[in-house]
């Protein structure tokens, strides 16, 4: 196992210095699938993406297309840049002052990193669920309704009531629908006005998913959404992801190979140094990968 790691690391370092033997192999593999398009009309299309933290490059020349209404899994060893890649899809990296992005990400053909991108619109369309559940310290109802309220889609309060524009009924329906979509409604329907911090970890994570769904996004990015949960809660989240894929485009980071194999339609394997080593249908990646390193990784020989 340690051998494999050192081999990968050498491969990574060698590549920065130029093309050596193992680098050549990587290049060769890359050429095999670089032109591989999983659909003619991808939802997200990433081209030559590079992300730097200061001088350090965390993502190297990544290009990939993410098809609509499917689950795409990102796997790879810790620190290889999966989260960084995910965050660059809805420009959450903008919030890190040392981060710098080069290359292009297109959402439905429109450049995400273009000068005229409206960040609010972008993040409404590309939602995100974080690794650790992070509900606001507010009632469950307020958590779910937070996004739409702040976007001015739900009017409430005395003035709205007097003007006859009170949307509390619409809000009630939205909250119920989102919680049902996140498979949480039955568990919390009696305590929508209780503080969300009183929920269990798994419930909190599903609440975060409901909160994300309430904004009605097109793409949902999930960063290890089940890593802090027990097997039962994890199973619930997995079922949920599979269901969501019927309506949404889901990109999910995971450390769990079985999970990736179970839930995803296509899988991207990142290896140390932020390079995308292979990207293909999940079945191919797990049963017949083109690269030896990927095979080692998915069969647990290292990582």
């Amino acid at each position: 196992m340690s051998n494999a790691i050192s081999e990968i690391e050498t491969a990574g370092t060698d590549e920065t210095g130029g093309l050596t033997t193992s680098g050549e192999r990587a290049e060769e593999i890359q050429s095999e699938w670089t032109d591989y398009r999983l659909s003619a009309d991808p939802k997200l299309s990433v081209e030559n993406l590079n992300v730097y933290y200061g001088d350090e490059r965390a993502i190297r020349d990544v290009s990939m297309d993410i098809p609509e209404n499917s689950v795409t899994a990102l796997i790879g060893p810790s620190g290889c840049g999966k989260s960084t890649f995910l965050r660059s899809l809805n420009r959450m990296n903008d919030r890190i002052s040392s981060a710098r992005v080069e290359g292009s990400v297109k959402l439905d053909g429109t450049e995400v990193y273009g000068p005229n991108t409206n960040l609010v619109e972008l993040r409404k369309r590309v939602g995100m669920v974080f690794q650790a559940p992070n509900p606001f310290p507010k009632p469950i109802r307020d958590n779910v309704a937070y996004g739409p309220r702040k976007h001015g889609e739900l009017n409430r309060g005395l003035v709205a009531r007097l003007l006859g524009r009170d949307d509390s009924e619409a809000e009630r329906e939205l909250v119920e629908r989102s919680l049902k979509q996140a498979a949480l409604f039955e568990e919390v329907k009696d305590r929508l006005d209780d503080n969300a911090l009183g929920l269990s970890g798994g419930q909190q994570q599903r609440l975060c998913i409901a909160r994300c769904l309430a904004v009605d996004p097109e793409v949902i990015l999930m960063d290890e959404p089940a890593s802090a949960l027990d097997p039962i809660a994890t199973a619930k989240i997995e079922d949920l992801i599979e269901e969501l894929a019927e309506e949404y485009t889901v990109v999910v980071v995971t450390h769990n190979m079985q999970q990736a194999a179970r839930i995803s339609d296509q899988t991207a394997v990142f290896l140390t140094g932020g390079e995308l080593v292979e990207y293909d249908d999940t079945e191919t990646i797990f049963e017949n990968p083109a690269s030896q390193r990927v095979e080692d990784y998915v069969t647990g020989k290292f990582g």
């Binding site: 959450m92 509900p135 909160r211 994300c212 904004v215």
Partner: peptide, 25 residues
Amino acid sequence: PNEYRDASAALGVNKWETVRSVVLP
């Protein structure tokens, strides 16, 4: 906690709204 700010930003809520409805409370 910064997580609150991240969560709010990821929902497309702008900074001022985030400060007003999550950070200040």
